[in-house]
Computed example of a mutant assay.
Amino acid sequence: MQEGKFIYLAGFGVEKRLILATAKNIREVFGFGVRFSHITLPPRLGYNPQRGQYKGDTLLEVLSKVYYPDMLKFLALLPFDLYEEGLNFIFGLAQLGGRYAVVSTYRLKSEDERLFFERVFKEVNHELGHTFGLMHCKNKKCVMNFSNSLQDVDAKSRFFCEFCSKILPKP
């Protein structure tokens, strides 16, 4: 069905080890191949100086102009603090049923690198789940459960529950 299609991953100011580990996570959880994009973003794009944050949907809109013929999805990892109108911050943002997603590592940090990477994987899987059409799940352990805090992120698994797994496409 999706043969020959890849999930493209871009990292902007994010450590290479995290990008490589994220690619491994994506292959393991979704079963699709991962390719790396080397696009760049203008340094102040979407930046709101009053808030000291970047507007998530502005970044998502610019990224949505990136296209590769063999692209299934496109995900960008960013070190910036993101927000949306009406919210203090967001961990990430995705086009529901679309191709593009962003995840911020800014609020996921921990001195424990394993915990930090695990948090990033959970948010990556969550946002990619949205691109595959998944909504928020009521199962507290499902990666599609809504996260409003680090405690919420830490409480859930990086995997999809049985119900959500059935909705995801197979490679």
Rank of each mutant, 00 (worst) to 15 (best):
L77M: 11
F36Y: 14
F12A: 12
G11E: 07
V120E: 05
M71G: 00
L63H: 05
R35A: 07
F91Y: 15
L78R: 02
R35V: 00
L18C: 12
R114C: 07
Y83Q: 07
F80H: 14
G98R: 00
V34R: 04
F159Q: 02
K24E: 13
R51W: 10
V29Y: 00
D57I: 05
K166Q: 15
S147V: 05
K65C: 15
F159N: 08
K24I: 12
G98N: 03
T58I: 11
R44F: 10
G129C: 09
S104M: 08
L128S: 02
P171W: 05
Q53F: 09
K55C: 06
K16G: 06
T58P: 00
K5R: 11
P49V: 04
L82V: 07
L9M: 15
Y83F: 12
N25T: 06
I90W: 01
N48Y: 07
R17A: 15
E127L: 01
V120N: 04
K16E: 14
P169D: 07
E61Y: 12
V34C: 05
D152W: 02
R107P: 05
L96C: 12
T131S: 05
A155F: 13
A21I: 02
V29Q: 09
L108S: 00
G4I: 01
N125M: 03
E123F: 00
